[in-house]
């Protein structure tokens, strides 16, 4: 059968099933890649939010500036890596990623508002790490498990 000849309905359905199975493999690869990338980025941003509480500007201006600088680098690297990794994603994946990434950034910004409190409880600092990481982390785990 030539690849250019028209097919009858049964052949069309068979060809369609084959094409979708082939594409499913490519989609799975793209989804897993972006998923692992999301997990790493979420944990890094969460860790920076955690460290920010340990180095508030009132006490450690140099440390604070370094952490903010690392945050900017992480965001820039995340944006560049996303553009490089972006290949084929299942329907809805990029929207979920955007939501997860945006919420993690918003939570990170919200953690800045806690700096005057000078929190020192490890449990609360750990909670900040988890909360900031959670949106993008959940999206990433969902993509890897797909």
């Amino acid at each position: 059968m030539s690849a250019e000849n028209n097919l009858n309905p049964e052949q069309q359905l068979a060809a369609l099933a084959q094409a979708q199975a082939d594409m499913d493999r490519a989609v799975g690869y793209g989804s897993r890649l972006l998923g692992w990338y999301s997990i790493i980025v979420s944990l890094v941003i969460g860790a920076l939010a955690f460290l920010l509480q340990l180095y508030p500007p009132q006490k450690h201006m140099a440390g604070f500036i370094v952490i903010i600088g690392l945050y900017v680098v992480a965001i820039l690297a995340a944006s560049l890596a996303y553009r490089k990794l972006y290949r084929s994603l299942p329907i809805g994946a990029s929207k979920r990623y955007t939501w997860g990434f945006t919420l993690t950034i918003v939570f990170y910004a919200a953690s800045l508002a806690l700096l005057p409190q000078q929190l020192s409880s490890w449990a609360i600092l750990g909670l900040i790490w988890i909360v900031v990481s959670a949106p993008l982390l959940i999206v990433g785990i969902g993509m890897v498990r797909k």
Binding site: L7, A19, P90
Partner: peptide, 11 residues
């Protein structure tokens, strides 16, 4: 048909 089927699975 294959192109349409493949693209139908992705954004």
């Amino acid at each position: 048909l294959s192109i349409m089927g493949a693209l139908n699975m992705v954004e």
